[in-house]
Nucleic acid binder design. Structure first.
Length: 479
RNA sequence: GGCCCUAUCGUCUAAUGGUUAGGACAUCAGAUUUUCAAUCUGGUAAUACGGGUCCGAUUCCCGUUGGGGCCA
């Protein structure tokens, strides 16, 4: 139904500043733009807003692009960098000055600060007084040649600016509260709002999908568009992702960089699925969505109006879900680096398939699997099942050991071990067999079941560990 | 401070002018199990408040309060 309202070709973009690693919020904005473009046969662009020379870094640009790619979010045309576009901005700024829609301002920053403070203390909207409004262009040029510092302001019309947001509905601002805001440092260097308007026009952007924190920039951008005779794109402002205290998601209170999640072992499938559901939903009870499915299901109508708190537990749940459902070979490829001390691929795969239900993120394969390679230190008491007597446990371990010794090394696999242990369980209780065997093999209070561990660590190591447990118990008995 | 946005379980959310207000995560209990995880079953838990409009409001309108964002 949207198709009738839209111009012929959907073109959307994201415009990150390369002043930090790919942020969760940027990733979500990118995802929504990407989904909207793909769902509507449109074009998705990336524009790097790197005009802040001090803070912009190439390495951040690389991080942003690499991680978008990793997530599966791809763009369609060549990347645009604002730093390379001075020539493009110049004629527009020139035009605004020539048509007297903008003017040079020579006010000192300190004076402006003082006025602003005064206005705020009176409860007024802080805005420019209009001090330099009527300086004649020739005079202004003269002062500039003489080296006086200046900036360029827009002559803002005193009227209401109204626009339609496809998520929020009609939004109205009183432009007379803005004052004549600054649009450029000089004829080559626009500041944020002007650059955005020119770039979006030049890229023929049809829909601006961005975070809600940009709503208050929108009326200013619309004023500029009007003065430059640009068409107005559609606006879609996304609700913000929030910290648990409901402030805007920030580095201080959360891990915000996609790279960090990636390195911690979050799968792209989980991240995409989770991010998509932060502020959007398909209005059904289904929650597991691949990127492909999101493309077919995505609709502006499903976007939420209010901010959404970032919930790590839900992300972890998604991640565990996708880990469990990934093919073993894929899981191995993604996780093999966590097993650098082991060269045995089959062994690693066995460990992974045994642990995959138990990990919330891939990095836990490493932390949860140490005991396969090195038995942790533990107290003899750990071997005791409930209130059973020490000598019973010791005797059971002894029985297990002698049974395990009888098996051929090549037969030391789960099904054979199961038969043996089930036989012993018949004589004793299952707790009195399984518990001490498991703790002997893992050295842990909580771990996967014993026979699976035994198969993985092998006959020799299993016997060593059982032996060691028996020694521990004996010293408990005597001591 | 000004302006703008916003409000359903703890969290993400569904729904409707008349519903036992639904689902998911989390949580609790039970089943399973030697422990943990996973799995299955069940439970607790929400329409911010005050006014209207209406036979009837969580839904529409106004206000209050709360939360957030932007502006420097």
């Amino acid at each position: 139904m949207f198709k009738n309202l839209l111009p012929s070709k959907i073109r959307v973009r994201i415009a990150p500043s390369p002043t930090g690693q790919l942020h969760f919020g940027t990733a979500r904005t990118a995802l929504f733009n990407f989904l909207f473009a793909r769902a509507n046969n449109g074009v998705f662009l990336v524009r790097i807003e790197d005009t802040d020379v001090e803070r912009s870094k190439k390495e951040f640009e690389k991080d942003i692009l690499d991680n978008l790619t990793w997530l599966g979010i791809s763009w369609d045309e060549e990347i645009i960098r604002q730093s390379e576009r001075k020539k493009i901005y110049h004629p527009y700024i020139k035009k605004l000055l020539e048509k007297d829609l903008a003017y040079y301002c020579f006010c000192q920053a300190e004076d402006l600060e003082a006025i602003k403070a005064e206005q705020m203390s009176r409860g007024e909207a802080p805005r420019y007084s209009g001090h330099c409004q009527s300086i004649k262009p020739e005079i202004a040029q003269e002062r500039i040649t003489q080296g006086e510092k200046s900036i360029i302001r827009l002559r803002v019309p005193q009227k209401n600016i109204e626009f339609e947001d496809l998520v929020k509905g009609k939004i109205t601002y009183d432009a007379s509260l803005f004052g004549d805001f600054v649009i450029a440092k000089n004829e080559d260097e626009p500041i944020y709002n002007l650059a955005v308007v020119i770039d979006d026009f030049e890229s023929r952007i049809s829909h601006i999908i961005r975070g809600e924190d940009h709503i208050s920039n929108t009326p200013k951008q619309i004023i500029i568009q009007k003065m430059l005779d640009f068409p107005r794109p559609h606006y879609i402002h996304l609700p913000l992702i929030l910290n648990p205290d409901r402030s805007k998601m920030s580095k201080r209170k959360n891990i915000t960089s996609i790279k960090d999640y990636r390195e911690d072992g979050f799968l792209k499938e989980a991240l995409i699925n989770f991010i998509a559901f932060l502020g959007w939903n398909p209005k059904t009870n289904t929650e597991i969505f691949s990127l492909e499915k999101l493309i077919t299901e995505f609709s502006i109508k499903g976007i939420q109006k209010a901010g959404a708190v970032f919930n790590l537990q839900k992300l972890e749940w998604f991640n565990n879900y996708y880990i469990k459902h990934l093919p073993l070979e894929t899981l191995f490829e993604l996780s093999k680096d966590y097993f650098q001390n082991c060269q045995d691929k089959e062994k690693i795969k066995k460990i992974i398939s045994l642990q995959k239900d138990r990990v919330k993120k891939l990095s836990e394969f490493k932390t949860n699997s140490k005991f396969f390679f090195e038995l942790p230190n533990y107290e003899g008491q750990l071997l005791i099942w409930k209130n059973s007597p020490n000598d019973l446990i010791l005797n059971n371990l002894k029985k297990i050991k002698s049974e395990f010794e009888k098996i051929n090394n090549s037969d030391f696999v789960f099904i054979n071990l199961k038969k043996i242990i089930d036989g012993l369980v018949g004589e004793s209780g299952s707790g009195e067999i399984y518990w001490p065997l498991r703790t002997a093999l893992s050295g842990l209070k909580e771990s996967p079941p014993p026979l699976e561990i035994a198969e993985i660590i092998g006959q020799k190591e299993s016997l060593i560990r059982i032996e060691q447990a028996m020694e521990l118990l004996k010293s408990e008995l005597t001591g």
